[in-house]
Amino acid sequence: EPLWIRPDAPSRCTWQLGRPASESPHHHTAPAKSPKILPDILKKIGDTPMVRINKIGKKFGLKCELLAKCEFFNAGGSVKDRISLRMIEDAERDGTLKPGDTIIEPTSGNTGIGLALAAAVRGYRCIIVMPEKMSSEKVDVLRALGAEIVRTPTNARFDSPESHVGVAWRLKNEIPNSHILDQYRNASNPLAHYDTTADEILQQCDGKLDMLVASVGTGGTITGIARKLKEKCPGCRIIGVDPEGSILAEPEELNQTEQTTYEVEGIGYDFIPTVLDRTVVDKWFKSNDEEAFTFARMLIAQEGLLCGGSAGSTVAVAVKAAQELQEGQRCVVILPDSVRNYMTKFLSDRWMLQKGFLKEEDLTEKKPWWWHLRVQELGLSAPLTVLPTITCGHTIEILREKGFDQAPVVDEAGVILGMVTLGNMLSSLLAGKVQPSDQVGKVIYKQFKQIRLTDTLGRLSHILEMDHFALVVHEQIQYHSTGKSSQRQMVFGVVTAIDLLNFVAAQERDQK
């Protein structure tokens, strides 16, 4: 057995438009009618409502009807409940999964919650491996369901041993009777949507819809739904939504950006999952974080739909894509998950301010006199920076000697690579993860907040409520011999709460 199987392995699926269902090699399930009293909570997966979006479509000038398939009504709160249950049931049916076995899954959280929910009911041990950027709410729900959680670096490539995929496979090879159901490759993922989600949409719309818009992560949702719609409703256009920084969209030119990270969760990847059939997507749109969270908040405030950030991405694209539809036509959007997962993220004004998705003037509360002053007023001194090749031991000596707790790590040209902190280095040394002679590049981390000289002290204040420091950066445009230009970030300084307090105190003292 291989040590790991690539999540982007070539698909062996034989589905073709027009091929009889009787030739399918898979076990198919028909939607079942729910009894009045459910035998367990797993029976509350599927049969989610279709809700008309009344205000947002009109606000953006849509002539067509805009409908939302509300997947956050599933038992675990997301569309991923469907595939989690289906993968477990299919693994039980073919004898792969037996009582007492362990389920391991690399996930952005929602599939993990679905699997942990099913594992709690069915009696399996469950280990979820997820990147650090995923919300604390997801972690809390997983723990409450009895799952064990392993976190991995957000910026690790999918084929790196440190990625959530790599760590999951390492655990599988170490733990007896453990299984990775593997949402990236498992046919049960798109089949769950082909058999149930798509049929529900067709039934709820009486077979009449002209466009379907869905955000894409593993691709199982859009693949399964689109294949069924292509068979039953061939005139329906399928629109895929991919965040900026991901590479799922086609044509490839759409993916060209210097951005590699994004805040919206559960969609987009740096590889093409095996289950994603991009041939059934008629057109791709890219979405960005700001519009995703703005539209998610709009869905909550104006439509009462308590959905997550990827739902915002989907609707932001839908109001663009559906401009081509006329009166009497219908566009369906998939709202994948609930706001429950993001209470401390985009639902929080403070978080939105820190990330730059909300401006101070958007909030009406009274601010102190210094709130709208610029960061450049602080008069920061030149920063202490270190090269990635310097040793951890030497870096600790320098920081202690100069009285700093942290320093930016830059390359020879001064471009920011990340940050090192005294606390992080000492804990890594004590844990045996690094040696004093190791290069400081081994303990770089990139989960820090950046701020510009033109940003306000109010925004800085919000950042420092949650973080010990902020890195002050400025952009530099560099022209190359080819005539092309590129933008790079340079370090201007490091600012802490002490710097802000000293500035405010000094100004008030001078005024007296």
Rank of each mutant, 00 (worst) to 15 (best):
I238V: 13
I238P: 00
I238K: 03
I239L: 05
V241N: 00
V241C: 05
E244C: 06
G245K: 05
S246H: 01
I247P: 07
L248E: 04
L248V: 02
L248A: 05
A249F: 03
E250A: 14
E250W: 05
E250L: 15
P251G: 09
E252S: 11
E252I: 06
E252L: 15
E253P: 04
E253M: 02
E253H: 03
L254A: 11
L254P: 03
N255G: 06
T257C: 11
Q259H: 14
T260W: 13
T260N: 05
T260Y: 15
E263G: 03
V264G: 00
G266C: 01
I267V: 13
I267P: 08
G268C: 00
G268F: 00
F271L: 03
F271T: 00
I272T: 10
T274D: 01
V275S: 04
L276N: 01
D277S: 08
D277Y: 02
R278V: 01
V280H: 03
V280D: 06
K283I: 06
F285Q: 04
F285G: 09
K286R: 03
N288D: 11
N288I: 15
D289L: 00
D289W: 01
D289I: 00
E290K: 14
E290T: 11
E291M: 10
A296H: 02
A296Y: 00
R297V: 01
L299N: 04
I300Q: 04
A301G: 14
A301P: 03
Q302T: 10
Q302N: 11
E303D: 10
G304S: 03
L306S: 06
L306R: 01
L306I: 05
C307G: 08
C307Q: 06
G308L: 00
S310H: 01
A311I: 06
A311W: 03
G312Q: 02
G312S: 01
G312Y: 01
V315F: 10
A316H: 14
A316E: 10
A318P: 01
A321H: 12
A321V: 15
A321F: 07
A322G: 08
A322L: 01
Q323C: 09
E324Y: 12
E324G: 09
E324C: 03
L325P: 00
Q326N: 13
Q326T: 10
Q329C: 13
C331T: 00
V332P: 00
V332C: 14
V333M: 13
V333T: 12
I334T: 09
L335K: 00
P336S: 14
D337L: 03
S338P: 04
R340P: 04
R340V: 01
N341T: 01
T344K: 08
K345T: 06
K345M: 05
K345Y: 01
F346W: 01
F346S: 03
F346R: 04
L347N: 00
L347D: 00
L347A: 07
S348K: 12
D349Q: 08
D349R: 02
W351C: 04
W351D: 01
W351L: 03
M352L: 13
M352S: 02
M352H: 01
M352N: 02
L353T: 12
L353A: 10
L353E: 14
L353Y: 14
K355F: 14
K355T: 04
K355Y: 12
K355G: 09
G356R: 09
G356E: 08
L358C: 07
K359Q: 15
K359A: 10
E360Q: 15
E360T: 12
E360C: 06
E360P: 04
E360L: 12
E361N: 10
D362T: 10
L363S: 09
T364Q: 12
T364L: 12
T364Y: 15
T364A: 03
E365F: 09
E365V: 12
K366Y: 12
K366A: 15
K366H: 06
P368G: 09
W369G: 09
W370Q: 06
W370F: 15
W370A: 05
W370I: 06
W371V: 09
L373C: 08
L373Q: 03
V375K: 06
V375L: 13
V375N: 13
V375Q: 05
Q376K: 10
Q376D: 10
Q376G: 10
Q376P: 03
Q376H: 11
E377P: 09
E377L: 12
L378Y: 06
L378T: 01
L378D: 01
G379A: 13
G379Q: 10
G379W: 11
G379F: 11
G379P: 10
L380T: 10
S381N: 09
S381H: 13
A382M: 11
A382F: 13
A382K: 11
P383H: 09
T385Y: 05
V386Q: 08
P388V: 12
I390R: 03
I390V: 10
C392Q: 08
C392W: 15
C392R: 03
G393V: 14
G393R: 13
G393I: 14
H394Y: 15
H394G: 03
H394F: 13
H394L: 04
T395S: 14
T395L: 10
I396L: 15
E397P: 01
E397G: 13
L399I: 09
L399G: 03
R400K: 13
R400G: 10
R400A: 10
R400M: 08
K402D: 11
K402W: 02
G403E: 08
G403A: 07
G403D: 13
F404V: 08
D405C: 04
D405F: 13
Q406T: 12
Q406N: 06
Q406V: 01
Q406I: 08
Q406E: 12
A407N: 02
P408D: 02
V409G: 07
V410L: 14
V410I: 14
D411H: 08
D411I: 12
E412R: 06
A413N: 13
V415G: 15
V415N: 02
I416E: 03
L417M: 14
L417R: 13
G418L: 01
G418I: 01
G418F: 07
M419T: 15
V420T: 13
V420R: 00
T421C: 05
T421S: 11
L422S: 11
L422M: 11
L422V: 14
L422W: 07
G423H: 05
G423R: 10
G423Q: 05
N424W: 11
M425A: 11
M425T: 13
M425R: 09
L426K: 10
L426F: 15
S427Y: 14
S427F: 10
S428F: 12
S428Y: 13
L429E: 03
L430H: 09
G432I: 15
G432C: 05
G432Q: 03
V434Y: 10
V434P: 13
V434N: 09
Q435D: 13
P436M: 10
S437M: 12
S437F: 15
S437I: 12
D438H: 14
D438C: 09
Q439V: 12
V440H: 05
V440A: 12
G441M: 10
G441R: 11
K442T: 13
K442P: 15
V443I: 14
V443Y: 14
Y445F: 11
K446Y: 12
K446P: 10
K446C: 15
Q447K: 15
K449Q: 12
I451K: 08
R452F: 12
L453Y: 06
L453S: 05
L453N: 11
T456I: 07
L457F: 10
G458R: 07
G458C: 07
L460K: 05
S461A: 03
S461T: 11
H462R: 10
H462D: 14
E465Q: 15
M466G: 13
D467P: 09
D467T: 06
F469V: 09
A470M: 05
A470H: 07
L471C: 09
L471K: 03
V472M: 15
V473M: 15
H474A: 05
H474E: 11
H474T: 09
E475Q: 13
Q476R: 05
Q476K: 11
I477A: 14
I477T: 12
Y479F: 14
Y479K: 11
H480I: 11
S481Y: 09
T482I: 10
S485T: 03
S485P: 14
S485R: 11
R488S: 11
Q489I: 10
Q489Y: 14
Q489F: 14
V491S: 02
V491A: 14
V491H: 08
V491R: 02
G493T: 14
I498E: 14
I498G: 13
D499W: 01
L500G: 06
L500T: 09
L501M: 12
L501C: 06
N502R: 13
N502H: 15
F503C: 05
A506K: 09
E508M: 12
D510Y: 11
Q511M: 11
K512G: 09
